[in-house]
Design a binder for these strands. Structure first.
Lengths: 152, 152
DNA sequence: AAATTATTCGCATAAATTTCGCGAAATTTA
DNA sequence: TAAATTTCGCGAAATTTATGCGAATAATTT
């Protein structure tokens, strides 16, 4: 399915997907044409799921990140699905995980400032009958934020 | 610093940075040349921090994600800095936040399976004198995982 | 307000990169 | 080991990106 050269390509593009096929070619030891073809295949097969630019939170005026643990009133599948959808539709929520343990979900939420976050919680949580409670953790420092995977 | 057209460009490329300047041109209403020049500027100014390919965790054989809350023995700056470095250097850790609240850090860790995660905790936590304790939460479903920001 | 200066724009064109056709090499299957 | 399939890499074509430059727009100064 995916061989050693694919892995090398993935290692590089998951750090920088703007490398040209000639540059990748040198790094993985294959002609630019073949590298290009492999990239196409990796994208077609969704081994590369997507290609994105990461925008600076500071530059865009959203310097705050919160980690929010959410507990639902009941673990009923229709309630869970409704919550999942609301989370997907909210652009202030960067990521959302359905998890084991005391709480049901953990969200990553960005905000302009505390007042803005406050407003978000009002809209998103207090208005919502399905939500039993939530707990906010403030991110003081982002040591690392990536989707990189160790590939062999 | 950044105007309405820049924002439109950012909105698009944070979802898909493989769009050509001609495609972006249509979407934002500016010539391809100008779009290209703006992209360059946005990258030079680190408003676009980086450009990455997101690799499928399943395809690469790392289907498990854990959220790990870590508490250090003492909140001494040298200990904190040492921990930060170890986290940055570990490719199994996708993201790491220094946070307020009961724990000091929250990490996102990927693993092949539970045994693999078990091995990681041994290496990373039990070996480490600086760590008082940690709590693992297993991700059952990744509803959303992005670095997208709401840009106006 | 008018004039000056500085930016940004978009066209034309040059440079670079990606895509495609094709035969050769390598790998897989029979 | 022969046949079939896949992958390779070269060269050419097509597409995309980068650059030069005058025109238009916006900002600053007087």
């Amino acid at each position: 399915m995916i061989d050693e050269i694919d892995k090398k390509i993935l290692q590089h593009v998951q750090r920088n997907n703007q490398l040209t096929s000639a540059e990748l070619s040198e790094r993985v030891g294959l002609s630019p044409t073949s590298v290009q073809r492999r990239l196409h295949r990796l994208r077609d097969q969704k081994i590369i799921e997507r290609d994105i630019a990461v925008v600076s939170t500071a530059a865009i005026g959203r310097p705050l990140t919160m980690l929010v643990s959410v507990e639902l009133e009941r673990e009923r599948s229709d309630i869970i699905d409704r919550f999942k959808k609301s989370v997907r539709d909210c652009s202030k929520v960067q990521s959302a995980y359905y998890v084991t343990g005391e709480t049901d979900f953990v969200l990553t939420v960005t905000a302009i400032d505390m007042a803005d976050y406050e407003a978000f919680t009002r809209d998103f949580f207090y208005n919502n009958q399905d939500i039993k409670g939530f707990k906010t953790t403030v991110v003081m420092d982002r040591i690392k934020a990536s989707f990189e995977l160790p590939i062999e």
